[in-house]
Structures are given as C-alpha cells and as structure tokens.
Design a protein around this nucleic acid. Structure first.
Lengths: 217, 217
DNA sequence: CGAACAATTGAATCCTTTCAAAGGGAGTGG
DNA sequence: CCACTCCCTTTGAAAGGATTCAATTGTTCG
C-alpha cells in the first residue's frame, strides 16, 4: 500500500515544510512523529467510516496547530490549499520532555488544539442546516482573520463533510442565505457577509456581540 | 441574578470537592479559576443557544478533567450524578507557571481534555440517529470502564442534547436496538450490550477490533 | 397510595437526503 | 483564440428520517 504522507521521522525541527494542494500530510494510525504549526494555507483532518463516509474532524488555518495526539494519529491530515507549516517533534519515550521551555511550548500548542476542537464541537452542536452554515461562515471569517469578504478555501464537499450535511444541502442553504440578503456570492469561493447580526441570530449566538450581553447598563 | 457555582477562588488545591446531583459547578463566562479532575461521579458541560436549545458539549467520567479553558469558562458545568473532584488552580498572570512539575501536570491534563474533545467530535460525526446512539453506548461503556452492562448515569434528555437529537428519537432508537437484540434494557438506566460487533458495525467503526484492520496478510 | 416527573409510543409534519439532470468555470488542445 | 471536456456546483422532484404534537405508560418519592 503506497502511502506517502509528508510526515517523516527525519524532519528538521523548525524548518518550514511545503505541501501542495490536496496532498496528504499523514494518515490515520501512522506513528505520530510530529505536530504541525501552520505558517500559511489551510489543512483538514478527517476520519472515514466503514461505509465510506468521510468526516472532516477539523479545519486548521494560519497559526493553528494539529496532529497533537500521542502514539498514533487518530485522523488523516491533508492540505486543503498549498500550505507551509513547521513540524515539531513529539514527546516520545526515548526523548521525553527534557527542558522546561519545551514543556511550555507543548502547553501552548495543546491549548490551541483544544480551542480548535471546541470550535468544531460548537459548530456541530447546531441543529438545522441553516444554523450550521451560518455558524460555519462566521467561524471561518474569524479564523481566516478576514473582514466582510471571505474567500472560502475549501470545496462544498469539504464543508458538507465538516458539518454533517450533503453537498446539495450546503449549496441550497447558501443559496437561501443569498436570497435572504444575508450574504452575497462572487464566484464560488468569494462570500461576502452582508448582515452580520442576521447570521449570528440564525447561528444561535447572541446577536453580533460576543461579550456578556447588553446587561442593564 | 443569584448564581452559585461550586467554583470558588479560594479552593484548597488538592482538596476533594463534593457536589450533589444536578448542582452547578461553574457557569459559562465565569472567570476560570480552576480546572477539575473527577475522582468519582459524572459531569456534563453545556452551552445554550439563544432559542433556548441546550447543547451538552461534553460528558466527563472518573479520571477525566474539564474546565481547562483559559480566561473565562466557555461552557456551563454541572454534576450529572453526585460527584467528587479535585480543583486545580489555573495559570494566571499573577501566578504564572512557576515550576516544571506544574507545567507537566498541565500538559497531562490538556492531553486528557483533548482526548475527551476528540471523543465528542467522533460521536457527533455520526449521521443517523442509530449510528449516534450505538456509538454513544460503546463510548459510554469504555469511559465508564464498564463490562457488558452499562448503568447509564444521565437522563435521555442529556443523551439527546449531547447527540443533537430529541428525547423521542433517542427513546425510539434505543427501543429499535432492543428489538434488533443488540442491547437489552433493565429499568431505564441499566443497558446490557448483547452484540458488541453489531453495535460497532452500526456505529460505523471497523467491527470490534480497533487496530489497522485486516489488511492484505 | 397518589402525585409528579421521566420515558415510551403513535400520527402528522417538516427537513434533509437521495436520485436525476442541468448549469458554469477552469484547463487543454486544436 | 475558441471549442471541448471534465468536474464542481446548483437546482428540481421524490423518498426517507427526525421532529413536533399529543397521549399513554412507567418510576420514583413523599
């Protein structure tokens, strides 16, 4: 079985690693040699059910980290766009966490990974297709650090497998949001957010402001 | 608004903390003073949408940790059963990570929390109600370290809000699994797993064995 | 034993999926 | 430069599954 992931026991730590669009980075059940920090580009992790269904378990953007599981990778990682990232060696039995700074680095990375996982859980907690897509758009804007216009880097299929929907439903839902004048399309990748609060409402979040709410000023 | 969580700035680190069934531990948006390690009992974390819907974002059992977010808690934590846990002080600006052993402790805790989050994501990745419930039962057995008979500690409502279903669907699905002779009920809490592999198949996992699969010998 | 709450079950509705087909871009080759 | 093809996306109609509404059954606790 010729499987070629970018993960390699001999990566130079700190060296930037380039992977092209759609290239695999590591496979589920491979020995986890490194975790990765994204310099530029987008990465997805996914799992496959026996019936062939794919579940995109995470999407990672500039500054995010992934592949922090110990022992063996529990997902497959692939580049969504061409991506540059830094591989960091994992803690192993032979090379345990020697120095403190290393421990702190892991700490920071683990916190970051936990945050990504939380985002994913929040997204999947939405019930209807409209809630999911609205939440996804808001989340993607935030993680891409984009303003009102998002250039969605992944395909409808990726979005669908991330949200637990079909391509068709994702497409229909986006169309519906356009018709409601909440967003506008420019090609299939560029999505402009027209009504922030409207989207937030649909997503089930407190409209627009993330803080403790209006309160009783 | 009188909100009384068990989280308290003055917890004695290392002291066991007892909370009764259904008691709150901390609330979303509270300052995160501690993270918790469960000695006995079960805890749920949840978030609420503006429409009132509840999403159970995590279930934690003996040995699990929760509440590791920095700054403010992002979920509300409540005891599902009466619970004993150990509060651990969070790293703050005033009291940064001084010593190495503390850093390692956090490391271990963060890894554990990441594992719990992964489980949750795996569960929510299931598409149909049957897949979700089957996966939930298998997961619960594992995390309770139970044998074939699970004493499910939470209500149908908790299960439903965890899986993104309604109480009705959960109930119907369980009934269906009983009819298929995959499980058997004894009261509403005791669930006996009759057909391991059958459940795994439905859950979409490779039947029973978790390893690299049959491969090509 | 009765009351209150949790769980189960039935029937109709709504939403998502499935099946089927058409539309639109990007890239290649003539 | 244009025509063609391939693949992704959009859209339509029918089918399937989960939710909602409504009511019953079963448990636990006072």
């Amino acid at each position: 079985m010729p499987r070629f992931g970018a993960d390699n026991p001999q990566h130079d730590a700190g060296q930037g690693l380039y992977v092209r669009k759609d290239a695999p980075i590591y496979f589920e059940n491979d020995t986890a040699n490194h975790w990765y920090e994204i310099i530029s580009g987008v990465v997805r992790t996914c799992r496959f059910q026996v019936d062939g269904h794919r579940h995109v378990t995470g999407l990672y953007y500039k500054g995010d980290v992934f592949g922090l599981e110990t022992g063996r990778y529990q997902d497959t990682a692939e580049a969504v766009t061409e991506t540059v990232m830094i591989p960091h060696p994992h803690c192993t039995r032979e090379a345990p966490a020697q120095d403190t700074s290393r421990a702190y680095e892991w700490n920071r990375a683990l916190r970051k990974a936990l945050g990504s996982a939380r985002s994913c859980i929040r997204l999947m907690g939405c019930k209807t297709a409209e809630e999911k897509v609205a939440a996804f758009l808001l989340e993607t804007r935030e993680r891409l650090q984009a303003d009102d216009t998002i250039v969605v880097p992944m395909s409808r299929g990726d979005i669908a497998d991330h949200l637990g929907l079909t391509i068709h439903t994702v497409s229909r839902t986006i169309t519906a949001l356009v018709r409601q004048k909440l967003i506008a399309l420019d090609g299939r990748q560029k999505i402009k957010i027209l009504d922030d609060k409207g989207l937030s409402m649909i997503a089930g979040e407190a409209g627009g402001s993330r803080a403790s709410g209006p309160g009783e000023g």
